[in-house]
């Protein structure tokens, strides 16, 4: 056959491999838009910030707001709750990291690195196990053993700093980036 180059293969082999490779590139190029269309659309990505009025929240009370489609916990903690959050040895926690969007990833989960002002705890209220909204614990209606939250779906218990203490959830409830605009207003996101 014309173009034979010995054991190194023929031009026909080259054409065969080259067309196969181009075919694979073509399939991938067609497949990618069909896969990527399922990712969040531009509208979903265009997430705003939320301004929240926290004036009406009483000590010991939690109010749930909606932020970027997710529940946002704003809890005004009592001195006892703050004290119990501070009384924990960070290194003994199942998840020792702060999970605070405003702080570096390796920050330790001290209560100070989870709350801008000790009285106010702001958290994304999504259980880090499978996404349920954990139920808040109050002295009247305790939820779990740690005074914070209990996820009724699969039994994950969080403390008064929103840190995971028991159950299948792998990490602490995340803290979003937020700032105090005044004593009674916060801006989240």
């Amino acid at each position: 056959m014309a173009g034979t180059t010995g054991d190194a293969g023929t031009r026909r082999d080259f054409l065969y491999v080259a067309s196969g490779a181009m075919g694979a590139v073509g399939v991938a190029a067609v497949a990618w838009p069909l896969i990527d269309q399922m990712n969040p659309s531009a509208a979903a990505l265009a997430l705003g910030t939320s301004e929240i009025d926290i004036a009406s929240i009483q000590p010991g009370q939690q109010v749930v707001f909606k932020h970027r489609g997710l529940p946002l916990f704003v809890r005004r903690r009592t001195p006892a709750e703050i004290a119990s959050a501070n009384a924990v040895d960070v290194n003994s926690l199942p998840d020792p990291l702060a999970r605070n969007a405003a702080l570096p990833d390796n920050t330790l989960a001290t209560d100070a690195s989870r709350a801008v002002k000790p009285e106010w705890l702001v958290l994304i209220g999504v259980c880090t196990h499978l996404g349920c909204t954990p139920a808040v614990s109050t002295p009247q209606q305790p939820q779990g053993e740690y005074g914070g939250w209990l996820c009724n779906c699969h039994g994950s218990a969080y403390d008064t700093s929103g840190r995971i203490r028991k159950g299948p959830a792998p990490s602490n409830l995340p803290v979003p980036a937020y700032t105090f605009m005044s004593d009674t207003r916060i801006k989240v996101g």
Binding site: P40, S41, A44, L47, R68, L70, H129, L130, G131
Partner: peptide, 24 residues
């Protein structure tokens, strides 16, 4: 959310399934 248990890419898979950052 079970897909988010997959190491490294789990959260990206969950987001891809949702088409958003939560079920919607």
């Amino acid at each position: 959310n079970m897909f988010s248990a997959v190491p490294v890419v789990g959260q990206a898979i969950a987001t891809w399934l949702w088409g958003d950052f939560a079920v919607g």
